[in-house]
Every structure is written in structure tokens, then in C-alpha cells.
Design a protein around this nucleic acid. Structure first.
Length: 295
DNA sequence: AATCGTTCCTGATAGC
DNA sequence: TGCTATCAGGAACGAT
């Protein structure tokens, strides 16, 4: 499940390829699932809109991957639940892009659900593999994305230099009530945190996921602030998690899995107190926590 | 205005 | 063995 650390890992890997993906232009696009493209609605127009555009920058906003293109366009990719972006090489000489991605990537079965492939003019191909077909790609005019409701309402970036404790408090004030777990996952409160890292953050901060935001004290919020940044940075350093579907763009797994304390560790012992990790649902989402040391 | 339920999907897994 | 039912879950959307 790509969250902030996984998306950040992806864009960092994309930025340091050799030859660089940065500066390359779009040659062709292949899909077997036109619905993966949400904007423009017509796939042929999406393809035409990309043709010849050059990649100027690769950035992340929340869980979105943003390719800043020439002509003031932005290609937005959201990997959602089971999608992940991969890169490979294709032979321009043949001139006919194929519906597969090259290299050892194809040996990992999780990378076989290819639904969208971009062929770049310097031999790179970017592909989205997505078992459940929730991922999306959108082509925007830069100004239109920036003034869109979805984009404007995204909360602050928790790893930005100016993300102070005051800024976190202000962000959380958007909600007057509700379970802290759900609020941390709300992209309009803070951008980038999902099911895995909300559980991990709350374990580390010793806060029960069902606690109501209105009942959190200054001290609790302070711990959330510190721990949030610490865990997200640690996960980026590890190259993200690969508990199920996420893979780095070269196809390899991230190394965060052994570092996690609660997510999908139901029935195992809490690293801190030795009691059994529990799993309960909050709003349809699995929530993992230690009922003993999270208050 | 805020919150809740529904929808999109299909491989993996459990149950028989 | 092989079938079917259930589950996972981000976020847009419609309903309340």
C-alpha cells in the first residue's frame, strides 16, 4: 500500500536513473484498461496530450506522483491500494512498443499486472502494475490542477521544513471530533499517511487509535508530532514497506517490513510490553494496536 | 457543512 | 480437488 514513504522512495528512484528519466520525452502509451486514465476521459486524447512532452521535474504531493511536463502540463499518478510504478528499458530500434516490461522485474509475480505503460524517447519505459485496478493516471494543465478542489484541499506535508508543531495542531483543528486514527489518515488534514503508518505512528506515540481527537492533550499531540516525522523518515530510509504489493520502481522490495511494530502483526507480541497485538476495524479499515500500552 | 455508506476491482484465502 | 463466498482498502461520490 503505497503511502508517503513509498511514494517518496519511488520518486527518488525515478530521479536518479541513468540515463536520466528527467528530460526524456513521451513517445507512446500502451494500456489494456482505458479506465485507468481519468483525465482526459478519452484515452486517445490522453495519449495525444502526452506525445512529445518532456519530463522536467518529478515530485510528490501526499500520495500522488507528479511529473511536471513541458507545455505546463502535469501527469499525475496515484497508486492507490495495490498499484506500483516500475521502470524498464525498451528498444527504440524496433519502434513498436510492447505490452510488457523488460528485465528481472517480470520475475516477481506482483509485477505482472501491467495496465499502463509509457514509452519514453530515450529508451525508458514507465509502467503501472496494479492487481486491483484502483490506480489512476491523469493529465492536467498545471494551473487547473493547482486550482482544483481535490488538490487544493490536501493537507500539509508532514516532512516539509516548515511543518512545525503549531502547524500540526492547526491541521488537526480541522476536525473537532473523531477517532485519531481516522483523522491521521484523512488526506485533507495531513497528506500522505495511510493505514500502515497511522497504526505505526500511534503505537510509537502510545496513543490508542480509538481515542477521540477532542480528548488528546497537548503532550499527546507533541508525541504524535515527533513520532510522525521520525517514522516517516525511517521508512523512507528503508525504501518503504513491501508487506504486500508495493515494490520500488526497479522491482525490488523495500526494507521497512521488519521495522514495523503493529501493522499486520495481529496475535504477535508487542515489542514494548510483550502483550498481544490486536486488530479491530475503524470505519472499515483494519487497525492494529497494543491494547496494553496504547492509551 | 460534516459525516456516513457505496463504489470501484480481483487475487488470495477460508470454508465446505 | 474444486467450487464459491468473503476479504482487503484509498478516495471520489452521492446521500443524509
Amino acid at each position: 500500500m503505497p503511502e508517503l514513504p513509498e511514494v517518496e522512495t519511488t520518486i527518488r528512484d525515478l530521479r536518479k536513473t541513468q540515463p536520466p528519466i528527467l528530460g526524456a520525452g513521451f513517445f507512446d502509451v500502451w494500456t489494456d484498461w482505458e479506465k485507468i486514465v481519468k483525465r482526459p476521459k478519452d484515452f486517445e486524447n490522453f495519449k495525444k496530450g502526452l506525445k512529445g512532452k518532456k519530463i522536467k521535474e518529478i515530485k510528490r504531493r501526499g500520495k500522488n506522483i507528479l511529473f511536471f511536463l513541458s507545455g505546463n502540463k502535469i501527469l499525475l499518478i496515484h497508486q492507490k491500494l495495490t498499484g506500483h510504478l516500475l521502470f524498464g528499458r525498451w528498444e527504440i530500434k524496433k519502434g513498436k512498443p510492447e505490452s510488457k516490461i523488460s528485465g528481472p522485474i517480470s520475475e516477481d509475480p506482483i509485477n505482472r499486472f501491467l495496465h499502463l505503460i509509457f514509452f519514453l524517447d530515450n529508451g525508458w519505459q514507465l509502467a503501472i502494475s496494479d492487481l486491483r485496478k484502483f490506480a489512476k493516471a491523469e493529465l492536467w494543465k498545471k494551473e487547473e490542477l493547482e486550482k482544483s478542489k481535490e488538490y487544493k484541499s490536501l493537507g500539509p506535508e508532514p516532512l516539509d521544513k516548515d511543518f512545525s508543531f503549531e502547524k500540526l495542531k492547526k491541521a488537526l483543528q480541522k476536525k473537532r471530533k473523531g477517532k485519531i486514527k481516522q483523522i491521521l489518515m484523512d488526506q485533507n488534514v495531513i497528506a500522505g499517511i495511510g493505514n500502515i503508518y497511522s497504526d505505526e505512528i500511534l503505537w510509537e506515540a502510545k496513543i490508542h487509535p480509538f481515542r477521540d481527537i477532542s480528548k488528546l492533550k497537548e503532550d499527546d499531540l507533541k508525541r504524535i508530532y515527533l513520532v510522525m516525522r521520525k517514522i516517516l523518515l525511517k521508512a523512507i530510509k528503508a525504501g518503504g514497506e513491501s508487506i504486500s504489493d508495493y515494490r520500488r520502481p526497479a522491482g525490488e522490495k523495500g526494507n521497512f517490513d521488519p521495522l514495523r511494530k503493529v501493522y499486520r502483526r495481529e496475535g504477535k507480541k508487542c515489542d514494548r510490553c510483550g502483550r498481544v497485538i490486536k486488530r479491530l476495524k475503524i470505519g472499515g479499515r483494519s487497525t492494529h494496536f497494543c491494547p496494553n500500552c496504547q492509551k
